[in-house]
Amino acid sequence: MNQVPGTEMSIQDILNFLPHRYPFLLVDRVVQLEPFKSLKALKNVTINEPFFQGHFPDYPVMPGVLILESLAQAGGLLVAGSVPDQMQGKIFLFTGVDKVRFRKPVFPGDSLYMHITYDRHRMNLWRMHGQAVVQDRVAAEGMFSATIVDREDQA
């Protein structure tokens, strides 16, 4: 994995960059990637998602924390796509969120687009802005920070 797959990433590219797997992989496709600038990714939300069994059976709404996780995973893909050579044997860990706002619920059948904009990085600490968008309306947004660490450092 020494090169960026291009301006788009298929599910196979995503699986090569992210450690997440079902049922916690929350990015289906990267539709646009500009290293060190921005990323646009897609999550197709379906009624088959396991979280809808309990959130809520009579009014299925995607949990806000999972919308944030989708944004965090998309942010990880922006980093991986910006510095793919530095990701060998590494993992991208969430370190914080700021100024998070939920503006619109996300329902089964929605196409959830994650718009990630690079803010800055210093050494292995990265900061970016994320917006989750459904039908041109912001569903959630916030500032995200994360760090690149050795996979062996996890405990």
Rank of each mutant, 00 (worst) to 15 (best):
Val149His: 06
Glu152Val: 13
Leu78Tyr: 02
Phe107Ile: 08
Phe24Asp: 02
Gly75Asn: 04
Leu42Asp: 04
Gln131Ser: 13
Val4Thr: 14
Arg120Asn: 04
Lys37Arg: 13
Lys90Gly: 03
Gln154Pro: 00
Arg120Pro: 01
Arg103Trp: 05
Lys104Asp: 02
Asn48Glu: 10
Met87Glu: 00
Gln73His: 08
His115Gly: 00
Ile67Asp: 02
Arg103Lys: 15
Phe56Gln: 01
Ser145Gln: 13
Ala132Ile: 09
Val65Arg: 10
Val65Trp: 10
Asp153Phe: 12
Asp136Ser: 06
Leu77Asn: 06
Leu66Val: 11
Phe36His: 02
Ala132Leu: 11
Phe94Ile: 12
Leu42Thr: 06
Val61Ser: 05
Lys37Leu: 08
Phe56Arg: 03
Ala140Ser: 14
Pro105Asn: 13
Phe102Asp: 04
His129Cys: 10
Ser10Pro: 14
Arg120Leu: 01
Gln53Val: 06
Ser10Ile: 15
Ala132Thr: 07
Gly142Leu: 11
Lys37Phe: 03
Lys90Pro: 05
Leu112Gln: 07
Pro35Thr: 08
Ser145Lys: 09
Glu34Val: 15
Lys43Ile: 07
Asp153Arg: 13
Lys43His: 03
Phe17Thr: 04
Arg137Gly: 02
Phe51Asn: 08
Pro108Tyr: 01
Glu141Ala: 07
His55Met: 07
Phe52Thr: 01
Glu141Cys: 10
Leu26Ser: 07
Asn44His: 14
Val30Trp: 13
Ser111Gln: 15
Leu42Asn: 03
Ser82Tyr: 06
Gln131Asn: 06
Phe102Glu: 01
Gln131His: 04
Gln131Arg: 12
Thr95Asn: 08
Leu25Ser: 03
Pro23Met: 01
Lys43Glu: 00
Lys43Asn: 03
Gly54Asn: 10
Met87Lys: 10
Gly75Gln: 02
Gly81Gln: 00
Phe24Glu: 03
Pro50Arg: 05
Asp98Leu: 05
Gln32Thr: 11
Gln73Leu: 02
Asp119Cys: 09
Leu68Gln: 10
Ala74Asn: 02
Arg21Leu: 05
Leu71Cys: 13
Lys104Ile: 08
Lys99Glu: 09
Thr147Ala: 15
Ala74Lys: 05
Asp119Glu: 12
Ile116Val: 04
Met1Val: 15
Leu42His: 10
Tyr22Gly: 03
Val83Tyr: 05
Met87Cys: 07
His20Tyr: 10
Asp58Ile: 04
Thr147Glu: 05
His129Asn: 15
Thr117Ile: 11
